[in-house]
Design a protein around this nucleic acid. Structure first.
Lengths: 205, 205
DNA sequence: TAGATTGTTAATCGATTAACAATC
DNA sequence: TAGATTGTTAATCGATTAACAATC
């Protein structure tokens, strides 16, 4: 890996390449080209080659990329060549769906706890988990050394909990609440808000 | 509104402004400035002014923007000054969560049907909906003149159903399946894939 | 009026594309 | 060898920022 700073926009594309390559590997495909991968993900071949070449020379002229090898490299770059423990805050419908989602484990993530502040929900079973009280959230996160959290709570509560997550040492928050969170430098937030995503498309209708 | 083509990247930011302004309006705030809005959403004041000014002169020097007025304008631009009927394909955990989500109605969307191919699920009640069979999906979509669909089915089935949605006249797909969909020009896809979003952050950990 | 803030221009910065030598 | 495809350079294209006149 290269010492210069990699633009964030390239980092956002790598997981898309990774996902497509993983799918190709599952189908038994052994090699691919920037051309073919580009068609699958809707990105130009030139851009894919440029993106990948930021991190090394992973392809071969004439034959393209060996999928297993490129998968390894991309996982290493994105640091998903290991498993990350992740927690869920909020045991509502979305928290449930995420707690039961089977798609994390082969992408580098392992849900380990789910929290809620509602006495009715605390102690309930969700799949293999028991909903834990949000009291002492900070201590529990620190004890388990959690760096990643998914937030599925109402917008009004989201900033308050985000502050606690930051205090506890969480560095990556996947925010399902429909509100922009403010966090200090060094902490990253990704938003998932279906209404926002839909509104990005209605303009063109 | 201006006749020149507006860059897509600006369109992706407008729903974020809209969401933040809606929240400010809910709190009873009447006016704001590009500076203040920028701090809330993490975007520079200059960029916010430039983005908004693509569509008209909605602010006033010295005082900024009247929130209610700017809300109206943004809704009009994004075409969410009306209600859009939306369907859900896939009555799994994620389909359930979306069907019961209360956050769509005040953002311009109205879920009207939920489909599945599993005989066990068809006929089941989810909130106010009854799960419908995916047979005759195309006819049902055409009859109801649906333009927007949310896809919460396994990756292996996603492209096949997407093709049917396109055939039925759907123009906007919110895809929860972890696979890149290929659709003809004129149809738009937005991806929601929590693992991909998490992988965009692990690089920095 | 004085202060604040817009809309817009020009400058800067960054990303994408096209093209091709290198080479498998 | 001939064909294919990479990695990279240079050119192009587009987005962001800084600055400020206009004006509320």
């Amino acid at each position: 890996m290269n010492a210069e700073k990699i633009p964030d926009i390239i980092i956002t594309r790598l997981p898309v390449y990774l996902r497509a390559l993983q799918r190709m590997a599952d189908k038994g495909i052994k090699t691919t080209s920037s051309q073919e991968l580009g068609e699958r993900v809707g990105i130009s071949a030139a851009q894919i080659r440029k993106d990948i070449s930021q991190f090394g020379e992973f392809g071969k002229q004439g034959t393209g990329y060996t999928i297993d090898y490129l998968l390894d490299k991309l996982r290493e770059i994105l640091k998903v060549d290991r498993m990350w423990d992740v927690i869920i805050i909020g045991a509502g419908d979305m928290g449930h769906a995420l707690a039961r989602y089977q798609g994390f484990s082969n992408r580098g993530f392992n849900v380990v706890m789910i929290f809620d502040n509602d006495q009715e929900k605390i102690g309930q079973k969700i799949g293999e988990f028991t909903v834990e009280s949000i009291d002492n959230l900070v201590e529990k996160i620190k004890a388990a050394d959690i760096k990643i959290a998914m937030l599925t709570i109402p917008a009004t509560a989201a900033q308050g909990i985000a502050d606690k997550l930051v205090e506890a040492g969480v560095k990556a928050i996947l925010n399902y609440a429909p509100i922009s969170l403010s966090v200090p430098k060094g902490v990253r937030v990704q938003h998932i808000d279906p209404a926002t995503h839909l509104q990005r498309m209605t303009y063109y209708l």
